[in-house]
Design a protein around this nucleic acid. Structure first.
Length: 210
DNA sequence: CACCAGGTTGACC
DNA sequence: GGTCAACATGGT
């Protein structure tokens, strides 16, 4: 079944029906979500899992301990995620922020202010900020990633990050669970069915022959 | 061996 | 105000 009218809610329903709920974000704590969001930048999640596991084993998945961790050790533990020198120092900086500003307090801020705070941290851009907001703070911000951008382009819609986010947020009910599931479904769907630029068994929009 | 992965930043038009 | 290389490892 194809959707030809950019009905984003209908697309969500189709994906959910086809793939089932994804229950993202896989993490035990909010801080683990923050760390994972940083590490997964331009990186496969399987590599992030390994790093998260090693960090956990060294007791570093807490703001204080991570902020005070040895930089070289940290680099070693996250090397499998790539960009490991950048990510290590940025992670320490983010950890310091949450060591000085408890997560419960920060996450209680109005969502726009929370977003600004996150964006002010080096290494946190739009997508990482929204991932933290949606999956760690549990507030409604739709996450736009490369897959989402690609899918919308296939459907004939282009725009920058904020434009695409507004598109989703104005088309959908403001529901944290829905946003969480939808973003996860887009990622899983894309990984399974879409190569770069082209889709093999596309459920969502007309193919070239259509 | 080439290409990509749940991006972000700073430099340079 | 937009474009682009740099950042780096691991899997197909």
């Amino acid at each position: 079944m194809n959707v030809r009218n950019n009905n984003l809610l209908k697309v969500y329903q189709i994906l959910l029906e086809e793939l089932g709920p994804q229950y993202w974000w896989p993490a035990e704590t909010a801080f683990e979500v923050v760390v994972g969001a940083m590490l997964t930048q331009q990186t496969k999640w399987s590599n992030v899992e390994k790093a998260i596991c090693d960090l956990k084993g060294h007791g570093l998945l807490h703001p204080r301990t991570l902020a005070e961790a040895d930089l070289l050790l940290l680099e070693e533990l996250i090397r499998c995620c790539g960009f490991y020198r950048q990510k290590a120092s940025r992670l320490k900086n983010i950890a310091s922020f949450f060591a000085e500003n408890p997560m419960d307090d920060v996450f209680s801020l109005p969502v726009d202010l929370l977003r600004e705070k996150m964006l002010s941290l080096k290494g946190v851009g739009n997508e990482t900020a929204d991932s933290i907001i949606l999956y760690a703070a549990h507030k409604p911000r739709f996450v736009i990633d490369a897959y989402t951008t690609r899918i919308l382009k296939c459907m004939g819609t282009e725009g920058d990050y904020m434009q695409l986010q507004h598109l989703f947020e104005s088309a959908l009910p403001e529901d944290v669970g829905l946003y969480q599931e939808y973003h996860a479904l887009i990622v899983e769907y894309s990984k399974t069915f879409c190569g770069r630029g082209r889709c093999s068994e596309c459920l969502l929009w007309p193919g070239p022959d259509d």
